[in-house]
């Protein structure tokens, strides 16, 4: 039922690039692994009293977080999607906390495309839609760069033709 709840009417979601999973894993997993290794190292050096047990427990937690993040990246990427409707752009995302934002083209103030160094290496970008409301917060992460550019141009064009001021 909860899936039907967030389906776009009449179409299907355009999903984002699987490269987003890789980028997020590269950015998030190694720091956690490094922390875990450092904790293990500290436990070996500090072989005194209750400390080694505490440090090792923390290391296990860090490794667990790394494993969870590894899985989360894939699930989260699969949850993102967008659909270009006649009058609105629909964006969905989130696994545990699901969200669907519908932004009328005529309400769009401007569209941003952003890509960090790792994003660029993997050829993806994040498109952000801005309306007069800060609550809108409509990001689409992990779009292939070419598609991001196309979407931005298309949205800007649609925004102009549907524009109704504030």
């Amino acid at each position: 039922m909860s899936d039907a709840l967030f389906d776009p009417p009449g179409t299907t979601w355009t999903r984002v690039s699987p490269a987003l999973t890789t980028v997020r894993r590269i950015l998030l997993v190694p720091p956690l692994v490094v922390v875990a290794i450092a904790l293990v190292g500290a436990a070996l050096l500090w072989a005194d009293g209750p400390w080694p047990v505490v440090l090792l427990a923390l290391a296990v937690v860090a490794l667990g977080a790394a494993a969870w993040t590894w899985r989360w990246a894939a699930r989260n990427t699969a949850s993102w999607g967008y659909a270009e409707q006649e009058d609105d752009l629909l964006v969905t995302g989130g696994v545990l906390f699901r969200r669907l934002v519908a932004v009328p083209y005529g309400r769009m103030q401007f569209v941003d495309v952003q890509a960090g160094p790792v994003d660029r290496r993997f050829g993806i970008a994040t498109v952000t839609l801005h309306t007069a409301s800060t609550e809108t917060a409509a990001d689409i992460p992990g779009l292939p760069a070419e598609e991001a550019r196309r979407l931005r141009n298309r949205l800007t064009e649609l925004g102009e033709s549907h524009g109704a001021g504030l």
Binding site: G94, F97, V101, R107, T136
Partner: peptide, 19 residues
């Protein structure tokens, strides 16, 4: 209605349980 900027629908885990 003319001032609607965007519309959002969302659901968290507890909300999902409660429908």
């Amino acid at each position: 209605h003319a001032r609607t900027q965007s519309v959002e629908l969302r659901q968290g885990p507890l909300q999902r349980r409660l429908g």
